[in-house]
């Protein structure tokens, strides 16, 4: 993985989109905090050898070829992408799939011992991997399905 210094620091457009101004509005403190978090993850995810003895989050592998954004960008900014997509879909009915939460869930589904995708209740769930490690708590899955659509579930109608 690229070292942290190669991550986008300035406001140059990375993929375009309105989440960048959101970062621009951040205070210096927040940016430093985010930066430190980034360093933490760079360390955590690239060099297990360095972190000998330190428990690391085990991030489950995704299905599909590659992520909708660079994984290193995703690690830091997934909440921005999701928040932006959320407002666009909810308020304006824009239903592009690139940053859709539904799509994250289908690619990042993790199969449990019974062969079925695990729900958010399981520690194995992709969205729990880092969050429980970093003590982040999200409420998204009170409403959003944490497993992909089961084909034919609606056939009863």
């Amino acid at each position: 993985m690229a070292p942290f210094s190669s991550l986008p620091r300035k406001r140059e457009p990375i993929t375009g989109g309105e989440w960048i101004p959101a970062c621009a509005g951040m205070t210096r403190k927040v940016r430093i905090a985010l930066g430190l978090l980034g360093v933490l993850f760079a360390v955590l995810t690239t060099a297990p050898a360095v972190a000998e003895g330190v428990p690391l989050p085990a991030i489950p592998k995704a299905k599909g070829e590659k992520c909708v954004e660079e994984p290193q960008l995703m690690r830091r900014y997934h909440m921005e992408f999701l928040g932006h997509q959320r407002d666009a879909t909810m308020r304006q009915g824009i239903r592009t799939t690139r940053h859709s939460l539904k799509e994250c869930i289908s690619c990042h589904a993790v199969d449990g011992t019974d062969g079925k995708p695990v729900t958010i209740k399981s520690e194995q769930h992709f969205c729990n991997a880092c969050h429980s490690y970093a003590a982040v708590r999200i409420d998204c899955f009170q409403c959003h399905a944490s497993t992909p659509e089961v084909p034919g579930r609606q056939a009863a109608r």
């Binding site: 009915g93 009170q142 959003h144 399905a145």
Partner: peptide
């Protein structure tokens, strides 16, 4: 009450108000 087993196309959950949305995702499609 807590909701489980939502359809991915129709998120809904405890503590919020809901009502007919004219099946907005279907209509958009």
């Amino acid at each position: 009450e807590d909701v489980e087993d939502q359809r991915p196309d129709v998120p809904r959950g405890v503590g919020t108000v809901e009502g007919c949305n004219l099946c907005v995702a279907r209509v958009d499609a």
